[in-house]
Design a binder for these strands. Structure first.
Length: 438
RNA sequence: GACCCCAUCGUCUAGAGGUCAGGACACCAGGUUUUCAUCCUGGUAACACGGGUUCGAUUCCCGUUGGGGUCGCCA
């Protein structure tokens, strides 16, 4: 029998990280087993289900590389089938009609629980049992004739041939109902695995208020999909050895439900950032450049006249200082504009010191003579100046850095000068010298 | 409230009776470096509590506490 899992989101416009983590586990599990991973859009709530919301789901899956087998099944297309099953249940006496009053008007179809205890072995939580007296009959078709979640969910899983249902912890109670439904329908139940929730720093359910809770937000912030994937996979699962930074293939090879923990956990943004840096190292310069450009476009910092070669040089120069695509626009804006701000503290510390500007003038004269304007050449020139004047390299480097970048932190100065180019460097130093100090 | 689930450093975790309780992020100290980041070295830091079982419990059992989930004609 081929292993078949599914991701069954209701398209509400956003994909929560808890849900996508469930999708990741389903995907990992089926890929590990050489099985299939299917998608079902639970769009029976017509109010919230829009084509745009469906597109968001599809984009999130694609971005994370969670490829689905076959075409997605839209639950709304299965309505007739759901009702047909309800009729059969009615006919065999497993369900009955009743007007419960309350919300709806008229009769609805209610599934009759078997009156026995129900147990099952959850693949992550172990043996679970619910006593008969704690199991109540429940509605499967509303009085307006529409099927309810429980019915549709079970019937669709049967028609899709789902063998393993891996879903959030919040579904454990439903599982007893679903198991009764499988029995009444006469279909073998799948294996169930319930994942613990992802909680926030307060141990509460992760919500919008806690910052990034949706996949799209991580994407917008410039995170790498493989970093989010890796971090989310490790939230509740571990390969059993000390590996943490892993490729998708390594995770597929190592993934088992047995190694999934059953206690809740929280996503540490700091570690995610670190993870992103780790995966960034594995990407090529061109890929990083493309990601940074997209981030700058979102930040409104991108200009079409930025030279591709220059852009690549800037990124190479920034090196591992880029942990997030959006870092470039935030930390290296001075490479792309003459309007860069001067950091007050750095100016005070490096330019407003006694004799700092005189020294900067000397350095300007030195740099004017450097040709070609390579990192090695400017390095040698300033070292020579340091030796001649008895200054330390630190004394020489800092004023120039602040003058050409406006800040006290950044890439190695000489690499930075080469990338900026002689003309720009000299102009910036002259402009800084001309600025009123104080 | 009822029913169910969970509990190892601040965080993510390894651990399936005998470990100096291991790793990672973060943090601190030192080294490298023109700054920052990287990198290297070292360090601080955990078995929620109380009973059992056992020669021996982080590990097994029970209870307590704390946290979470579910109790819809939502999904």
């Amino acid at each position: 029998m081929t292993i078949r899992t599914r991701f069954a989101p209701s398209p509400t416009g956003n994909v929560h990280i808890g849900n996508i983590r469930a999708a990741i586990y389903n995907w990992l599990f089926s890929r590990h087993a050489g099985g299939e991973f299917l998608l079902r859009i639970e769009d029976t709530d017509q109010e919230r289900s829009t084509p745009a919301a469906v597109r968001t789901v599809l984009e999130s899956l694609e971005w994370l590389g969670l490829d689905c087998d076959g075409e997605p099944l839209y639950q709304s297309t299965q309505r007739a089938h759901h009702l047909e099953v309800a009729d059969r249940l009615l006919a065999q006496g497993a369900a009955y009609k009743e007007d419960k009053g309350g919300t709806g008007k008229g009769e609805c179809v209610i599934f009759k629980m078997p009156g026995t205890d129900i147990s099952f072995r959850d693949a992550v939580k172990g043996g679970l049992t619910k006593k008969a007296e704690d199991l109540k009959d429940f509605v499967i078709v509303r009085s307006d004739g529409s099927p309810v979640f429980h019915l549709g969910n079970v019937v669709d899983d049967i028609t899709m041939g789902i063998t393993h249902v891996i879903r959030g912890d919040d579904h454990v109670e439903n599982t007893f109902k679903h198991l009764a439904l499988y029995a009444a329908i006469g279909a073998p139940p799948p294996v169930f695995a319930h994942l613990p929730m992802i909680v926030n720093a307060q141990g509460k359910p992760y919500s919008k208020r806690d910052g990034a809770a949706y996949v799209g937000e991580f994407r917008e912030k410039g995170f790498l999909p493989e970093a989010l994937f890796n971090s989310l996979a490790l939230l509740g699962w571990s390969p059993g050895d000390d590996r943490e930074v892993m490729t998708r293939e390594e995770m597929v090879a190592a993934f088992t439900l047995e190694r999934v923990r059953s206690s809740p956990s929280q996503l540490d943004m700091t570690k995610l950032l670190w993870m992103n840096g780790q995966h960034l190292k594995r990407r090529g310069l061109d890929e990083i450049a493309a990601g940074c450009r997209a981030a700058m476009q979102r930040q409104g910092l991108w200009r079409e006249d930025i030279d591709p070669a220059y852009f690549r040089a800037v990124i190479a120069c920034m090196g591992e200082r880029i942990r997030l695509f959006s870092d470039l626009g935030e930390q290296a804006a001075f490479f792309f504009t003459e309007e860069y701000p001067y950091d007050e503290k750095s100016v005070k510390k490096r330019l407003r010191k006694e004799g700092a500007l005189d020294l900067l003038r000397e350095e300007l004269a030195t740099l004017e003579a450097v040709e070609p304007f390579t990192a090695a050449a400017t390095d040698a020139a300033l070292h020579a100046l340091a030796a001649r004047t008895g200054r330390s390299m630190g004394d020489l480097v800092h004023p120039v850095r602040v003058a050409v970048s406006g800040t006290g932190v950044g890439p190695g100065l000489f690499d930075m000068l080469e990338v900026l180019g002689k003309e720009r460097v000299l102009a910036r130093i002259r402009r800084t010298l001309a600025m009123p100090v104080g």
